[in-house]
């Protein structure tokens, strides 16, 4: 699980072009959207693509994505629960 979380952080930093950030800057429970990391709805669509491409997991409804993409913890839990 911890490996997965680290892997996710690296993938997210690269995918969303979060220059100046390292995995250490993102806490596992940090809120990714809005006030936390400041991601927005375009990033949410990018994360859906990430899960689909790298983890073969489909999220049809962007609303569903909101809960899953709350933090690194919730994304990792979602991936684990499906595998």
């Amino acid at each position: 699980m911890e490996n997965l979380k680290e892997k996710l952080k690296v993938e997210i930093i690269e995918l969303l072009n979060l220059e100046e950030m390292t995995p250490a800057d993102i806490a596992n429970d940090e809120i990714l959207f809005g006030e936390g990391l400041g991601l927005d709805s375009i990033d949410a669509l990018e994360l859906i693509v990430l899960l689909e491409k790298n983890y073969k997991l489909k999220i049809e409804n962007p609303e569903e994505g909101k809960k899953i993409f709350r933090s690194i913890n919730t994304i990792a839990e979602f991936i684990e629960s499906k595998q």
Binding site: L15, I42, L45, V49, E52, K53
Partner: peptide, 9 residues
């Protein structure tokens, strides 16, 4: 296939 939307936007 699956496409990342940012470039389109």
């Amino acid at each position: 296939g699956i496409l990342s939307p940012t470039a389109f936007i």
